[in-house]
Design a protein around this nucleic acid. Sequence first.
RNA 1: GCGCCCGUAGCUCAGCGGAUAGAGCAAUUGACUACGGAUCAAUAGGCCGGGGGUUCAAAUCCCUCCGGGCGCACCA
Length: 554
Amino acid sequence: MTPAELSAQLLTVVDGALERRGESTLTIGIDDVLLERPKNREHGDWASNIAMKLAKPLKTNPRELALELADGIRSIDGVSSVDVAGPGFINMTLDAAAAGAIAKTIVEQGDEFGRGNLYIGVKIDLEFVSANPTGPIHLGGVRWAAVGDSLARIFTAVGGIVTKEYYFNDHGGQIDRFARSLLASYLGEPTPEDGYGGQYIADIADRIVTGFTGDLASITREDQQEIFRAMGTDLMFGDIKASLHDFGVDFDVYFHENNLHEGGDVGRAIERLRTAGHIYEAEGATWFRSTDFGDDKDRVMRKSDGGYTYFLPDVAYHVTKWQRGFGRAINEQGADHHSTITRVRAGLQALSLQIPKGWPDYVLHQMVTVMRSGEEVKLSKRAGSYVTLRDLIDEVGCDATRYFLVARKVDSQLIFDIDLARSQSNDNPVYYIQYAHARVCSLQRQLGERGLGWNRDNGLAQLALLTSNFEQLLMVELSRYPEMLDAAAQNLEPHMLAQYLRDLATAFHAYYNGEAILVADDNLRDARLNLCAATQQVLHNGLDLLGVCAPEKM
RNA sequence: GCGCCCGUAGCUCAGCGGAUAGAGCAAUUGACUACGGAUCAAUAGGCCGGGGGUUCAAAUCCCUCCGGGCGCACCA
């Protein structure tokens, strides 16, 4: 019996009770019949607070109503006992066969288990990382990469058609500063006042000098700077892409800001705003009257020097997303850019393109504090102090880094202690989860070595033998997987998956230590092996959505 | 000053309307000559930042104050 089936049955019982009371105005939907997993095992497999919710509108005592509903629930097939507890909770326990059915479902559905239809057919654009190619990708960007990529995988698992997109900012002041810094390094000049420092600048400059086929020394400084700009961003971007790839993160679309300028999107957007009367000239600049759309002050769109601020290209960029047919667009970005949200949405509204008001969605994540030797490392490209993705892959490892970064809620500031991550990487919960998976694999290997077999079909028929407390707890965890995945997708919170997998691994390790799996009794052994296989499958499916591997041996 | 986010065990974090607030690390103590101890079991550790409210029920929702982070550019 699946949670949804129980929920539907419960609804019928509640409807019956309402009918008996001649209550016709009160309609109860499937969502109102709240089923929850009690934290305490003594409260059964499932609990409902529906009696407490209905007591008031029905002008009755919650306990009385609960007792009445409990009578109806007792007759549901697969429910073995029902109790009323506390102020009116209805606690239900399933019989062993009904509970064991989850293992059968998982083994039969395999890789498909947990896939849902929450976002079936929905085209989703997920933009993340989008770091400027002015330096190596650092810890903040790695957090985006881990979270964004997992989110993309989760969306896909619940039916979404996902495009992972990277907005490549190869235009504007930051890039100029980067180019000037490279040039200065080449010429042996000190780093410009507002430029970037760090060893990587010298490295990139060297690579440009080596790679450039013409005679750098004989061209003008302007031309030199242009060379360093073009080749520098290419090299830097290549490095970023390569380290992300090694981290298991690849994008479907790399959108270059330059295309917006060259393709005329920016110009068209500004004309459309002008025609609609949303812009004005003042102090030599062109302004957007964003206060008409909820912003707290008007914004400059075109600077007095003729260049655009980032704002207009951003809006034009989102217009292309809309025009590319993404009913859902989600941008992941650092909390330090949160003020762009109002502006981008305001700009899109002003264009009158029938774009919904709350479009696009944002996932903001708080900043990462890096600790090393007990002290905070101030991250700064300019000062050249940072921890790069490459460092993390080399020193901590992909799986541990990904798990650590995705296991936290995005809106909590997190502290990344390099020494801890490196020296105690074995304490990372990811190994605990992977170990659970490897243990099941080991059991299956053991079978052969002991000359035992595993009759899967018999195991599926014997699931009612799984009656121990360990087994019951493990099955409860397993059955939570689909609903947990939906919740993670709905709330844009992949950390729920990371937490879940740890809980599942805990339930498995406890079982493994508490009961022998490879027992002499064929029926019991087959049934237990099926439960282990189900666990292995869910661990595998879940880890895959985190971009973490599920090893057979460790 | 205004806006967004966060204050939960010594540390890092879950829980976000339900029944005794959870986990990992750190501390203390145990476990089968073993299906891999990268494990398990147990003890100890909390006025869930303070104060008001809403509710049958608040760590969770609302208000307020106090702490911390991040924004508030003709930077991105």
